[in-house]
């Protein structure tokens, strides 16, 4: 990991208010460290794409500022963007040009590279995404998966310090999805920072080291994947016939929120967070030992790790609905 102190992406109060008055992105403070794979998670319409467009200078921010690779944008777009590979909102190419010709056109626009190496750069990028065989085919005749791969190839035309990939697995079959996942891991391993947006938690969970969660234009969570899991809070549930004594023992050990739920039958449930937030988590073995010492009959002890999916829904507040 490079020792560059400046983050790959940093935003302060980045806001986009459309002329209609709708606030698409509401004062977000992104912080993407160098060398990480950052999963940018949120339901469709939560402001992910607008944020990415602002990061790349396609859409002007109403308020706030941001930096890419330590340089302020959009002022330094000319010097920063060549080091940034991007796939924004799905692939878009000229339908009547071949895949190769489309990439050659993008390469021609890049003033920071020599014309001489254009063919080699394009062929390598096509090779990397597995499109070498279809390079001469017109884009019009590409399948959805091939189009997505060509979009990735465009982002990989040259070695990049930062890759911004917006929903890169859209339209890919399971095989293609696996390939993209491998590609992202490889890029991360090579030292590039990858900023990966998705509305699918499973996708982010498998490749990311860091996560940001968007909901209704706000960044509702940001941190490492581990921190996200912790935020989910590991809880312990104790089934006992003497719930009040059990709760007292658990509080004494320093658990977080502890509550007693009466259940059907003879026993009740005592549910407690294993950590009260700042402190170190309570050890379950010690908890059982103390309960037994206190003479509390323990019928069942369960450590509950909530699914990230549940947390995601909890954070973003909806299931299949699209944010408005």
């Amino acid at each position: 990991m490079p020792a560059d102190p400046s983050p790959a992406i940093a935003t302060r109060g980045l806001t986009k208010r459309f002329r209609s008055g709708q606030v698409a992105v509401d004062g977000i403070d992104l912080m993407v460290p160098r060398g990480c794979v950052y999963g940018f998670l949120g339901p469709n319409g939560s402001g992910k794409t607008t944020t990415i467009r602002m990061l790349l200078g396609l859409v002007s921010a109403t308020e706030g500022e941001h930096e890419l690779l330590g340089e302020s944008m959009p002022a330094h777009a000319a010097s920063v963007l060549p080091r940034v590979g991007a796939l924004v909102e799905g692939p878009a190419f000229h339908p009547y040009l071949s895949g190769r010709a489309n990439l050659m056109r993008l390469d021609a626009g890049d003033r920071s590279v020599a014309a001489a190496g254009a063919g080699r750069r394009v062929d390598e990028a096509l090779e990397r995404v597995g499109l070498a065989a279809a390079a001469g085919k017109r884009y019009r005749n590409y399948s959805l998966g091939m189009r997505q791969r060509l979009g990735l190839a465009g982002a990989l035309l040259r070695p990049r310090d930062l890759l911004v990939l917006d929903e890169p697995t859209n339209g890919l079959d399971p095989q293609g999805t696996r390939e993209v996942r491998t590609l992202v891991r490889e890029l991360g391993a090579e030292g590039s920072t990858v900023f990966l947006s998705s509305h699918l938690l499973s996708e982010i969970e498998q490749v990311s080291t860091h996560v940001g969660v968007m909901s209704h234009g706000r960044l509702v969570f940001q941190g490492t994947l581990t921190a996200l899991r912790q935020a989910a809070g590991v809880r312990v549930r104790v089934e006992t016939t003497r719930p009040d004594e059990a709760a007292a023992v658990m509080r004494a050990l320093g658990t977080g929120t502890t509550a007693v739920h009466a259940t059907s039958g003879v026993t009740s449930s005592v549910v407690a967070d294993l950590s009260d937030g700042d402190g170190t988590p309570v050890d379950t073995a010690q908890l059982v030992e103390q309960l037994v010492k206190a003479g509390v009959p323990v019928h069942e002890v369960v450590v509950e790790r909530p699914d990230l999916e549940d947390l995601f829904v909890e954070l973003t507040g909806e299931g299949f609905d699209v944010d408005q």
Binding site: L58, L81, A92, L106, G109
Partner: peptide, 14 residues
């Protein structure tokens, strides 16, 4: 309309 404008601008083409 084909979306290629955003590709060119992030290359970046001024």
């Amino acid at each position: 309309s084909s979306g290629t404008l955003r590709n060119l601008l992030v290359v970046p083409v001024d």
